[in-house]
Design a protein around this nucleic acid. Structure first.
Length: 563
RNA sequence: CGGUGAGUGGCGCAGUUUGGUAGCGCACUUGGUUUGGGUCCAAGGGGUCGCAGGUUCAAAUCCUGUCUCACCGACCA
């Protein structure tokens, strides 16, 4: 490709609304342009990278025995009513009507469509297992799109769905996908980890997420320092600590000390407990009922864990301060967890505490040396924190940020049952299928790769996804016929060799070319200049290491081929 | 949805407090100059100041409404 025939679109200035480095560099390098919140046009360089990633994904999926299909973006509402998600999914699902006022959705995912397809196409156990996938545009009307392509509303996703007669077969395909995903992210040159995950609204039991490690990530991941245990903080189990023994000192009600805020006072205590009021699960929508959750003062309530409690409403609703005041009869900070007239669930760490400080159920009063008496309901409802013992039994946990780029689920029969997707089994009986589903955020990988691979001059693409492999930079070509001849000759040779070359044939000063090529992150470059041409040489430069070396013109083809 | 902030040529911004008919840098065009790391000089083109209404002799500037965008939070692949 010649720059003169290409749309390079680099810019010097960092866009004002781009917060993270990948977003800034994607704009500056001319990869994407924003059309509206969460909606981006892919410019040629961006699209090249996107396609290269898709190629790797496709290749590994095919190798793992999956078969590619392509489903419509627009899906009829009937299917979503059948699965129950027309009601469940919420405002993230963009609903539209056609000219006949029939309801449709823009597909945020394709369980319904694939299940509808398979129930018609497959009728015998002999055709299973089957794993179908597509690489396609999804639409999710995100509450808050951000970080450019990282959390767009429209994005490219690889989604695969597998169908099985039994759990064992599902597990086999699940394991294959786990391996395929590991292969994909390795080939893409990413530093990633597979972590135990929550299956969220998609449903199902077993699930792993694949995270690219980066400080700008939106998820917290807990790792064991000693084993390869890794889990999303949403899921990481907080192990119950040993129960502390009460000292026998009598409980005592004290006034809140003056000259210190309640928060600071509590933070200074060795052991202080707090109460979080959340909405109770209820069938009727009469007056709201509430559940009190008790945690150690320094711990955060884990929403995902709380939602799994049978008595708690899902999605989680935390009471407003006003409501809490009414229910507790005092400011929430002074609620007394040991004496509440409603359902109480105590976090393991809080339950193990003894001689703790907590509210006295009355404004500006605390109890010191409080202890639990009688039966309390105990559950794991907090976020793990760095330093907690690892649930695997080895080492302690450390917490890092990650960008979720892949997620695999064992769905079970959630969709196949709701939509009656089954086949005739060996014994001639109709049997509902078991399903798995496997997603990769193809467009998000572009941003994730940049987060991990950049320097102050721009992007440093891992070789397999670089928009161009080599930049050919002739200096002052418009003034020197021999530079022009040498550059043109190299361009034809390298291109004929199958190398993806970007030939910068603009009439620009060398500095401009160097900066642009570094910004867009071309891994290798060849500089053709008068000085070296005197010795029949050109200069090679490596984008990542910055190392340069002189090459004889006659060696270039061989040298580049060997990279 | 709550909080904060912002909408002025393609991009980054000033001008708004104190109303007087729009400016700077980058980019773009032309000519010259320079040429191994974003040269320099000169001359140009491009904006009904997000939109609607109001106040005024006069509105980017003041008032009302509205839309959009970003960040934090809630929420979420």
């Amino acid at each position: 490709m010649r720059t003169s025939q290409y749309l390079l679109s680099t810019q010097k200035e960092t866009p004002a609304d781009a917060e993270v480095i990948s977003h800034q560099l994607m704009i500056r390098a001319g990869m994407i342009r924003k059309l509206a919140a969460g909606l981006y046009t892919w410019l040629p360089s961006g699209l090249r990278v996107l396609n290269k990633i898709a190629d790797v994904v496709r290749d590994e999926m095919n190798k793992a025995g999956a078969v590619e299909v392509l489903m419509p973006v627009v899906q009829p509402a009937d299917l979503w009513e059948e699965s129950g998600r027309w009601e469940e999914y919420g405002p993230e699902l963009l609903r539209i009507k056609d000219r006949n006022q029939r309801d449709f959705v823009l597909g945020p995912t394709h369980e319904e469509v694939i299940t509808a397809l398979v129930r018609n196409e497959i009728s015998s156990y002999k055709q299973l297992p089957l794993n179908l996938y597509q690489i396609q545009t999804k639409f999710r009307d995100e509450v808050r799109p951000r970080f450019g392509i990282m959390r767009g509303r429209e994005f490219t996703m690889k989604d695969a769905y597998s169908f099985h007669m039994d759990e064992a077969s599902l597990q086999e395909t699940y394991d294959k996908m786990y391996q395929a995903y590991s292969n994909i992210f390795s080939r893409l040159g990413l530093d990633f980890r597979a972590v135990i995950a929550d299956s969220g609204s998609i449903g199902g039991a077993v699930s792993h997420e694949f995270h690219v490690l980066a400080d700008s990530g939106e998820d917290d991941i807990a790792f064991s320092t000693e084993s390869n245990y890794a889990a999303n903080v949403e899921m990481a189990e907080a192990v119950a600590p040993a129960k502390a023994t009460p000292s026998g000192a009598p409980a005592e009600v004290i006034d809140k000390p003056s000259g210190i805020s309640v928060e600071n006072f509590l933070a200074k205590q060795d052991t202080a407990l707090k109460v979080v009021l959340v909405k109770a699960q209820s069938e009727e929508d009469t007056a709201d009922k509430w559940v009190a959750l008790v945690l150690r003062q320094e711990h955060n309530l884990n929403d995902v864990k709380a939602e799994k409690l049978p008595q708690v409403e899902s999605p989680l609703v935390v009471a407003s301060d006003e409501t809490a005041k009414e229910v507790f009869g005092c400011f929430p900070l002074f609620a007394n967890p040991t004496n509440l007239n409603l359902d109480v669930v105590v976090d393991r760490s809080a339950a193990a505490a003894a001689d703790f400080v907590c509210g006295a159920g009355e404004n500006a009063k605390f109890i010191v040396n409080a202890n639990w008496n009688g039966d309390i309901e105990v559950a794991d409802i907090r976020d793990v924190v760095a330093g907690d013992p690892s649930p695997c039994g080895q080492g302690t946990l450390e917490i890092k940020r990650g960008i979720e780029v892949g997620h695999i689920f064992q769905l079970g029969d959630k969709y196949s049952k709701a939509m009656n997707c089954g086949v005739l089994s060996e014994t001639g009986k109709h049997q509902i299928l078991t399903m798995g589903c496997y997603g990769i955020g193809v467009s998000r990988i572009v941003a994730a790769a940049i987060e991990q691979n950049h320097d102050k001059n721009g992007i440093i693409w891992p070789e397999p996804i670089a928009p161009f492999t080599l930049a050919l930079i002739p200096m002052n070509m418009h003034k020197s016929q021999r530079i022009k001849d040498a550059a043109e000759a190299l361009y034809s040779t390298l291109t004929a060799q199958g190398i993806n070359v970007l030939f910068d044939d603009r009439k620009e000063r060398p500095g401009v070319m160097f900066n642009d090529m570094e910004l867009i992150g071309v891994p290798h470059s060849i500089v053709v200049g008068e000085r070296n041409l005197d010795n029949q040489q050109v200069e090679y430069k490596n984008r990542r290491t910055g190392e340069t070396e002189l090459l004889d013109l006659s060696q270039v083809a061989e040298f580049i081929a060997a990279l």
